[in-house]
Simulated scan of single mutants.
Amino acid sequence: MDQHIAEAIGRPDLIRLDERLVCLRFETMKVVSALAAVRHLIDTGAVRRGDTLLDSSSGIYAYALALACHRHGMHCHIVGSTTVDHTLRTQLAVLGATLEQMEPCDDLKLDQKRRVERVHEILAAHPHYHWMRQYHDDIHYLGYRAIADRVRAETGTDRLTVVGGVGSGASTGALTRYLRAADDGPTDVELVGVQPYGSLTFGAQHTSDPDIIIAGIGSSIPFENVCHELYDTLHWISFDAALSGTVDLLRRHAVFAGLSTGAAYLAAHHEHGRTPDRTVLFIAPDTGHRYIDTVYTRHREARPLTQLTPREITDQTELALPWSRMPWNRARTRAA
């Protein structure tokens, strides 16, 4: 029996959508990493119950950290993106978390930069706060070990392709690292990362998507816990293409999920078609509730997936909307 709701929320569902196409569906994915990270900090003496944990978030991590703090008796202080909605603000308030939300801003790159600057200001005023550094500390990898064990048990690691948003690296990267580190022999696990246009992490900062609202899978600042050498292939997907994937996933498979899930599903659907002999598992990090107005009410704009094909490129200078795909080949090069 679970001892706290966070443990139940963090447990994902494995759903087979098609022959060799599997969805790893979370209610709120980052609860997994936040719980494990806070537990580790307590166990190692880095923090004590009653301390204040601080971080920046565009939404999912804010809720995850608030739940982890509630579970372990900590205070939670979040510098939130302009995209944090009324529902999440209310939940954070009731959970006792402090939320500082950025003023409305059309440029989500600037929003992310301002949030990190504000974190540093808070730390200067309150040096005893502990900055969780979700974008920089690989302590957030720890929670995915148990997820990898479950995936290995139910799908195996022979000809497995993992697809999902890169984000801070602590979901796709962590999951794949643990899957490749199997004790029972060689594995064949490929990793396909999904990015929005404009993201710095894999060198697309010279591009832009005027409709981007999927900041959680991209970055405008360097993310130090992204291990570039884990990734085999990259997909850059625009808002419009991700919307089509999101709507198709609900229409075809009844999975109600967020926009980054739609982008991952679109990429996974394509990879599944390219290599039908491989099992393709894509990560759905959250539900679709906060995307009702921005995505689902526009469902008539969704294009059939048969009309969407990525532009195959070999260099980031060739990137073009709405969808580009490039081999990364586990290169260690970090985007400048």
Results as ranks from 00 to 15, higher is better:
101 Q>A: 03
281 L>G: 07
330 R>A: 08
125 A>N: 10
87 T>Y: 13
106 D>L: 12
290 R>C: 06
39 R>G: 13
48 R>H: 15
31 V>Q: 01
246 T>D: 06
303 R>W: 12
218 G>T: 13
140 H>A: 03
97 A>N: 06
285 P>W: 01
250 L>N: 14
217 I>W: 04
213 I>F: 02
109 K>P: 04
207 T>Q: 13
232 D>E: 10
249 L>G: 00
79 V>G: 01
4 H>S: 07
57 S>C: 03
273 G>Q: 08
31 V>N: 01
68 A>D: 08
259 L>Q: 03
264 A>G: 05
237 I>S: 01
244 S>D: 07
8 A>S: 15
5 I>F: 07
227 C>L: 11
322 P>D: 04
272 H>K: 13
41 L>D: 00
4 H>D: 12
288 G>T: 03
110 L>D: 09
134 Q>C: 06
240 D>A: 15
295 V>I: 15
94 V>G: 10
238 S>G: 14
147 I>N: 05
188 D>A: 13
10 G>E: 00
109 K>Y: 07
1 M>Y: 13
112 Q>E: 12
307 Q>F: 15
306 T>G: 14
302 A>G: 09
151 V>R: 07
25 R>W: 02
118 R>N: 12
95 L>Y: 12
46 A>Q: 15
228 H>D: 12
333 T>S: 11
15 I>W: 01
19 E>Q: 12
139 I>T: 11
171 S>G: 02
170 A>V: 02
38 V>I: 14
255 V>W: 08
207 T>Y: 03
136 H>V: 03
32 V>Y: 04
160 L>N: 05
67 L>I: 10
113 K>V: 14
9 I>H: 12
36 A>I: 04
235 H>E: 07
336 A>D: 04
151 V>Y: 08
197 Y>F: 15
289 H>M: 12
228 H>I: 08
204 A>M: 06
145 R>N: 08
172 T>R: 05
287 T>I: 12
333 T>H: 10
67 L>M: 15
132 M>T: 00
